[in-house]
Design a protein around this nucleic acid. Structure first.
Lengths: 226, 226, 226, 226
DNA sequence: AATGAATGAGAATTCATTCAT
DNA sequence: GATGAATGAATTCTCATTCAT
């Protein structure tokens, strides 16, 4: 639970106060977990600090000892969540460095689904930010995440081109767009019930899921491969 | 502004009251427009009836002459929105019936972007429903919309297969998933600023947009064509 | 449904407007019945004109063609109700003129229970007035009703004394008080479930009811008779 | 002002919150008094929390720090009121244990009138519950009170029978009914202006009141004594 | 540093009454 | 005479934030 340097540059004021960072770890975790649950379920505005303090067993006033205000609390959670995602994806990327582009795509999809199933709150927070224009400093947050995704996929793609696994004449922006869209939607479908009508990914068990991933990447291979 | 039969089956009670349907059209439109703006901007729970009545210049109590309650108001707007979408897509489908699969895809994408630019609120409402678990009767609403999208794309795809423009050995579910994902994300990128990092579709003018669409469909053609 | 001259003298303004009295009788009855139901159930303030117009199938504005306002509507109903009660009790009194005091008491009790079971709304309205200090012109209304009851019982009692059936040295006020209390409570117990704990009158069928009445009057006979 | 265990069994949720019980006593009393006034005057539904907060000088939101909701507030007051009544009546019963049945009746009536004059709000609340079918958990509340009254009078009566002061062949239910009716009506007449026409108890000063009580019990003695 | 009571703005909803048609 | 849409004040309840202890 160590905090990497904030993704979202300080916009003048601190958001998380030192009090919170000095808290006993188990208390800190209780607070973070309760907050992730509430924000992921309700979104920023609709989330209730009352609910969070009740679930984490702290006093209402304490929130304001830990964070400047609701906004600061939320921004802290966002940082926390992004750090987790980043750590996971970097691991996947490095662990598959020697494999070919399409295999890496498959691994990334699988790792993504696994991550979401292990940390449903975190993906939930991301989705809330994505679609709520009133989240504080939303543009900044989104740009951070999506730039990250684009970098990840772009880097995979360029490596694939360099190795001759992917057509070199591909318009890179469009290809990244396609990869990003499919990855993101695949994860959404795996996490939001009643989201996709075609594949029922949210209930899919492991073997079936891998089969779907293979079919998806097969089509992409035809579309993108040399 | 005539009301086609409700997409969402009557769950026992009426939602829109006859009073509203008998209103002078310009007033009705002012109310609908103000409500679309507010619901698309804030989502169901966070939308404020106060804001809507202020923007449309009616009295607070009048809302309850028009709709049973906030939920009823929202469901009416949803029906209204879906009817518009459906009408548009059906037109596109029929107008391009004689063309080949990939041309139809291009036309659909272009029509979609145009629709969103002309009716940004409507797409916004759909996105809110998609990502807010607490929207009333959400599952029902979503199923209606997504089944509609899947039917549309599935029907295009099967016609394409029948004409030999698309590989016959394609796993249909996965192919529909890909088309749906790309279509939806393309529209999202065109409507939500800072949504896509790769293509800057939201600011793209017509010629550039068509270029992007062509690139996208090109890759799909390789992936899906015979 | 003819209207006897108002019990409650005109306090300056008319309450029921001629429009209402000229209405076709069936419509007038529908309105009165719906209003009795609502006022008896909810009391004056809590009763909703919306509910009444919905139940009687008239337009909301029509109420104000028929009555000056809610208060006037209520006062009219009160007059209507009292006229019914009065008519009934006078009949009982006259029909039993030749019988002895205690038999007349029994008959009155039985007639009272029957009346309440036939016209539960009317007794309900009376109870509401009795206990809601905010009913318009309440004191006036109550005095009318209770003076009526006291006259009725006082007249029975004095006839009983004159005939030598009742002790002559009885303090009349106290005796009337006892009779009134028992009569009223007996009727309340017969009409409001969970009102009396001792006798379960509200569910009592005719023979059992008559048995209770006889026991009650027996005790009274011992207390009051010569 | 200590709270005896709730008469009305816990129906799953707490109603009064600890915040209220920890309040400084003078503030707590201000709130209780203002609420008793308002609920006794208007009844449950018609009572306005706005009025109560204004009268007790607290903020609107504070009510919800003290009680779950309006219903909880009301139930707390009911408990509070019943505890007071019970305490008083038990004292009377014990203080007169060695006296004969009819003397005890007189004492009870007198104590009742005194109680009502000292705590008019409390009797007012009871009357509201009695006649408003829409009070939350009304049946439960009423049963508690009336069972209590029936027990009290039944116990007095049986002791009177055992000592040979009261006829042994009396139908107990009917006798209790009579006693309950007279006691209750006597108190009502003493508390609700314009309630009884015969005795003018509400304005009666002490000596006159005692005279009325003696007359009443005399008649009862004839009716009930051996 | 922790607590939790206090606050008041703002939410959805109901309703008696008015008035143009 | 009948209609029913319009109105706005009043209702209960929620919540982020402050502050004295």
């Amino acid at each position: 639970m160590k905090q990497s340097p904030s993704l979202i540059g300080p916009s003048g004021e601190e958001t998380v106060l030192p009090t919170f960072l000095n808290l006993p770890p188990d208390k800190r975790e209780r607070v973070v977990e309760a907050a992730l649950v509430e924000f992921a379920d309700k979104g920023y505005q609709q989330a209730s600090l009352n609910t969070i303090v009740a679930a984490s067993g702290i006093a209402k006033g304490s929130i304001y000892q830990y964070f400047r205000d609701k906004k600061g609390f939320f921004l802290y959670l966002f940082d926390f969540a992004v750090a987790r995602v980043r750590r996971t994806l970097v691991q996947v990327k490095e662990a598959s460095a020697h494999q070919d582009f399409f295999t890496r795509l498959e691994k990334s999809l699988l790792a993504g689904v696994e991550f979401i199933r292990r940390h449903p709150r975190i993906y939930g927070i991301y989705l809330k930010i994505l679609f709520d224009r009133h989240v504080p400093r939303r543009d900044e947050l989104l740009r951070a995440v999506r730039r990250f995704a684009a970098d990840y996929l772009g880097s995979l793609l360029r490596q694939g081109m360099a190795r001759g696994e992917v057509r070199a004449d591909l318009p890179e922006g469009t290809a990244v767009f396609i990869l990003d869209a499919l990855l993101d939607r695949f994860l959404q479908a795996a996490s939001v019930p009643a989201f996709d009508v075609a594949l029922d990914l949210d209930r899919a068990a492991s073997p079936e899921l891998e089969q779907r991933i293979r079919e998806l990447v097969d089509i992409l291979r035809r579309g993108l491969a040399r």
